[in-house]
Design a protein around this nucleic acid. Structure first.
Lengths: 200, 200
DNA sequence: CTAGTTATGTATCGAACGGTATGAAACTAG
DNA sequence: CTAGTTTCATACCGTTCGATACATAACTAG
């Protein structure tokens, strides 16, 4: 009995287009007309496939985390704390100065603080907290941390630096400029760790 | 021949109210109705006194820099590089976790990246570049920098850390949590400077 | 007093907002 | 073929957006 008229668009591709628009223009700065134009999907089809603007944003954010932002989860598998941090900071530079950018979708969306953007902002905050918690757990079980270094605070500091890189990228800093910043950050932030040998 | 009906509101107080709203809700998230309600000013009076929404924002941003953000300029007068950085980072924590916040108006506004927010975003970027340039000049004429430390890159790194603090505050981190982050940042970022004595 | 000037309050402008009703089109099952 | 189901395309919903026209009120200069 089922069947029905087939879709005239690929939902995954359309979601990627929506992600690009949200990334470039922010949640509040993106209208449904912007989305339908970029996705090549009519308005009722968009609502049927993705719910509403809030739900579409949440799905785009998921895709962001598992796509362009996947380096962050992968960085946690590095063997040493130093390497984890290096991959995160350098990955943040590459991500936020890439072709889609500039900036980071989740950092952007934290600043969608208007009255109609609460859901989007909280989705971004939740996604950020999850990432930071994963980093903290990675540090907690690391044998190569100095005993006086609180893994929770270190995770927050690393996250703070990558957040700052995203802001700098959104402000127009180039990839080369931010690579210099990342290098200096790694030399200094990791200064306290540099004499800790890699674990067995 | 002049004269005319006197104002029923204080323009400076109204501008402070506008600043509060922009700070809390962002440029894109703030409507003229929000502004007139908070400022206690009718719409035509607002336009007569402040131009339009973009110009009002620019004036609010100026007031932000010379008011709540004045600590940043004052920090540059500290006698040592270490103290300059310490005041900037700790000041960023206090500013972005204050009663008006959370967050930083200029960092927020960089992420107003919709099509109708170009003027506001560029005003924020210009204000950020000016601040960073002042910090760079402060470092360039500092005798207490290691010779291998580029003052331009150090200024960008410090700015990156304060930006990150603002993002963290906007994400809900408390003042106490961010003070811990600031402490760790100062111990690590300034680790390379710690053996440099204060200048004569 | 009157003339001139500026601000105020109301009521609205056209455009764009997020979201939908409606009916035709395109498919599958029988 | 027909019946049932799903999507598509158009046109539209009420609301809100930033920005103004207009008439009145409150002041100063003469």
């Amino acid at each position: 009995m089922p069947g029905g008229r087939p879709r005239a668009f690929d939902a995954d591709i359309a979601l990627d287009r929506a992600l690009e628009v949200f990334w470039r223009q922010g949640y509040e700065g993106t209208s449904l007309s912007d989305l339908t134009a970029a996705m090549g999907v009519n308005r009722p089809s968009l609502y049927a496939a993705f719910g509403n603007k809030e739900e579409l944003f949440a799905k785009a954010l998921d895709r962001y985390v598992s796509g362009p932002g996947a380096f962050a989860a992968e960085a946690l598998t590095a063997p040493t704390v130093r390497e984890v941090v290096r991959r995160l900071v350098e990955g943040a530079v590459e991500l936020t100065t890439g072709a889609n950018g500039p900036g980071c979708l989740s950092v952007n969306s934290v600043h969608a603080c208007g009255p109609d953007s609460a859901a989007a902002r909280e989705a971004a905050i939740a996604c950020r907290r999850a990432g930071e918690a994963a980093l903290r757990r990675r540090f907690e079980q690391a044998p190569d941390l100095p005993p006086d270094c609180d893994p929770t605070v270190l995770a927050r500091l690393v996250h703070t630096v990558t957040d700052g890189i995203a802001v700098q990228a959104a402000s127009g800093r180039t990839r080369e400029e931010l690579r210099q910043v990342a290098d200096l950050a790694l030399r200094t932030v990791l200064g306290e760790l540099k004499d800790i040998p890699e674990p067995a």
